[in-house]
Computed example of a mutant assay.
Amino acid sequence: MISNLNILDSVEICVTDRELKKHYYKTKIQDIISDNTFFTMIPSSETGRPVMFFKDQPYELYAKGTEGIMLWIINYLGTEKLDNLSACKFQAIAGPQTTQRREFFRQPVSVDLKFYITKSEAGVDTVLERSGRIVDLSGGGCAFMCNDQILLRSKLLVQFSFRDSDFEFDCEILDRINFTQTRANWDYKYRVKWVDAQEKTIDQLIRLVFAQQREMLINSGSRGGDRFV
């Protein structure tokens, strides 16, 4: 499961807070052992303080590979000493998956979503309304959480409101992460890309995404967003 990782590889660990905002912390692989278990150097926040991890929630690990950006779901096992240096011990529980190459800045958000499965590889065609929560958003697509299991490459119609503006997009599912074996509030996470979206609608969304980014920078001084581009 972690054969793509090597000692001293640069990686990023994503921490999702209670408001579903994502925070990315750079670190390096310090050692790799059996049972998909590995150690990283303890990452630091932008204030210089060590990042705290908890054993009761999953985290995302990102690393750049020859096939693109690879993603694992990992559990925190604790802190141990390696060569007299403290290190974080993790175990991969899912992955790797190749994630979407990001053509746009992805802004962490927490936005209610309504969606409809319009077409899937299984031939499902329904107008049943479903719900979820968008956790990052860009001019090229979004990532959202929901409790519905949906086939990859399925086509969806999504509707949401962002900064007092209503949006509706046709989209295609690019990848899926299964959280059913964890304590996450949602069962699945999906990444989608917009399909045949109107340029003026994309421009409007991009302006709003950057407006929110600027506000977050002013309010918190955080860079935020996805650093793998």
Score class of each variant (00 low, 15 high):
Asn4Phe: 10
Leu5Asn: 02
Cys14Leu: 14
Val15Met: 07
Arg18Thr: 11
Arg18Trp: 05
Lys22Gly: 01
Met41Ile: 08
Met41Val: 07
Ser45Gly: 15
Pro50Ile: 10
Phe54Ser: 10
Ala63Trp: 01
Lys64Tyr: 13
Lys64Met: 14
Trp72Leu: 05
Ile73Leu: 13
Ile73Arg: 01
Phe90Val: 03
Ile93Trp: 05
Ala94Leu: 12
Arg101Asn: 09
Arg106Ile: 04
Ser110Val: 06
Leu113Ile: 02
Lys114Glu: 15
Phe115Cys: 03
Tyr116Lys: 13
Tyr116Glu: 13
Ser120Tyr: 01
Gly123Pro: 11
Val127Gly: 05
Leu128Val: 13
Leu137Ser: 03
Ala143Asn: 08
Phe144Cys: 06
Cys146Gln: 06
Asn147Glu: 09
Asn147Phe: 00
Arg153Glu: 14
Lys155Trp: 00
Leu157Ala: 06
Val158Asn: 00
Gln159Val: 11
Gln159Glu: 14
Phe167Val: 06
Cys171Tyr: 02
Glu172Lys: 10
Arg176Lys: 15
Ile177Val: 13
Phe179Ala: 01
Phe179Cys: 00
Trp186Lys: 09
Asp187Met: 08
Tyr190Ser: 07
Val192His: 02
Gln198Lys: 13
Asp203Glu: 15
Gln213Tyr: 01
Met216Lys: 10
Leu217Arg: 15
Arg223Gln: 11
Arg223Met: 07
Gly224Met: 12
Gly225Val: 02
